[in-house]
Amino acid sequence: MALRELSSLEKFLELKKPNKYSTQGDKKVPVLQSSDGPPLVGLITIACNLVKEAKRSELLGDSAESRAVVQQWLEYRVTKLNNYNKDDIRTILKDLNLYLQDKTFMAENQFTLADILMYYGIHPIILDLAMQEKEQFMNVTRWFDHIQHYPGVRRHLPPVVVLKNRIYPSRH
């Protein structure tokens, strides 16, 4: 999964030639051989590198605070969303829903790499949600829908249907 994600990210960043990745270990951690140094290991390391290569460093945050928040969510992404069991899902959705109550994006007021990788990571969870659950976690759903419509982001993933007019309006 991480490899498709990285290739989508490359396209989003409009990087000219696609990289060749390999994986290591049972967790299939992505590895990128670089021509002039040690190999880059792990989703976050590689993704941040691609962003810099594309000269889009604003996607890593445009202030010290937002850079820290971006890193925090990238970390969350690989620790919580790379492998979870069924019981974790509600906790994840609850946490995120609370966090996104007063936010449009994952970090500060800008679209960043954290939005992209969180979106890729949470996509399978959202895809499985019933309409009523999507409404229950409205802040996550709203954020998710915004990111999946963000030009160039969705790529390899199927769109998830989100209704703007709630059908279970009494639930919050």
């Binding site: 449009t104 759903t141 709203r142 954020w143 915004h146 963000y150 209704l163 703007k164 709630r166």
Partner: peptide, 10 residues
């Protein structure tokens, strides 16, 4: 704005 990020479209 409960279900939307911006007023019209995305």
């Amino acid at each position: 704005l409960n279900t939307r990020t911006f007023l019209v479209g995305e």
